[in-house]
Amino acid sequence: MVDLIKSEWERLWLKKSTWLCFLAIPFMVYATILYYAKKNMMILQTSPEYTNFLNFPVAALQEQLISAINVFLILFIVLSITEEYRSGQMRMVMIRRYNIREILFAKYIVIILVMFLFLSYYFIFSFIEGYIFLPKDKTTRFFFREDIFLAKDAAIYCLKYYFLAFVTIIAVASMCVFISLISKSTTVAAGANIAIVLFLAMGTEIVKIFAQILGHAPPTKVMFSSIVHIQYKGIYYLLSNNELNSWIIFIILAYIIVFSVFSYLYLRKKDSFI
């Protein structure tokens, strides 16, 4: 199994697109800095929206997690699963005594490891570039938290935020692996994955608008059953002792377990040798 993971790891890093995605990180962070530097001029310093280098890693991740990082994740998954599965390249690995479930499990592990590496790089770069370009205050604030954070606490908060973001990425990855497995060609796989992420992002807004029309308060439990909404707001909730926390954790676990079971059942039904 370790050999299989090693070989998948090598195969992922042979692709130029993986290197390109990692090379794009500093530029993504710099674009976010430009956006927040413009926004800072219009906001009071005491507001949690005001970004200095202490809360910038979190602010930078919140916007990019639902857009760019999800898209990179979809790219890795479709390139390593649908492409190799449907074009028959995977048969080369199956000459060895591994079966298809082991191979896909290895791919899943490798993708999660790469995303862990990706998030760590993103954290380091956002910290360094934020330190260079953004105001260097001694304290900072975060959303949904009343207390003022000193440098050490803020760093711990950021690390916790990144860890939870990583957990939600595992959930999105399980969903996308299943969708990429069942789609027949790579274009459909990419389109379907992006459509579902877009639907989960836009769906919560539509639910909110419908609730407004009918005169109810927005149904938070329904809105937080979308993993993209959890990525956007739920992580702040999780770090601020909200009563919804158990529901959010339940949804994340449900995504991971349900889609893993689906993929497993799909692969059980299929012929083991493609």
């Binding site: 697109s17 898209v71 790219l75 492409e83 790579t186 990419a190």
Partner: peptide, 11 residues
């Protein structure tokens, strides 16, 4: 590559 092309177009 087709996947890259889809994602690059949207990007």
């Amino acid at each position: 590559n087709a996947v890259l092309a889809v994602i690059a177009t949207i990007a």
